[in-house]
């Protein structure tokens, strides 16, 4: 029931690698990481959900909030995710059409750099 976030930067694109669960208790941690990046002037962000065991609407809300912030500065947020139980949540909410979702970080990095 914890969320760990590792932040790194690659060619101007920030990568937030999440590990654990994103729920009402831990989502504020993700929100502040996204806000910190935007405040630092980073608007191209990849959120890597590969090691996320659980995400609920609190987490989705934070991702949408982050997307609004970077889009206002012509940036983008891409996601890395291949877990079917999490992809299903993005499909149900229609957010799979809002966020580009890649199966691997390599794929996301290549596409974001283009």
């Amino acid at each position: 029931m914890d969320l760990r976030i590792e932040s790194s930067t690659n060619d101007g694109t920030a990568v937030l690698a999440l590990r654990g669960e994103v729920d009402v208790y831990t989502a504020p941690k993700l929100k502040s990481s996204l806000i910190d990046l935007v405040d630092e002037g980073t608007y191209e962000i990849i959120v890597d959900l590969s090691e996320v065991d659980f995400i609920d609407s609190s987490g989705l809300g934070v991702l949408v909030g982050g997307l609004k912030r970077v889009k206002a500065r012509e940036g983008s947020i891409s996601l890395v995710c291949s877990q079917e139980n999490i992809l299903k949540i993005f499909r149900i909410t229609g957010l799979n059409k809002v966020f580009p979702i890649y199966a691997t970080l390599d794929e996301a990095t290549k596409e974001t750099a283009q």
Partner: peptide, 15 residues
């Protein structure tokens, strides 16, 4: 509309 994104009850209803 409970959540920042308002997805909570929608998800329960779908699942």
């Amino acid at each position: 509309d409970y959540e920042e994104g308002g997805f909570g009850l929608t998800l329960i209803g779908c699942l």
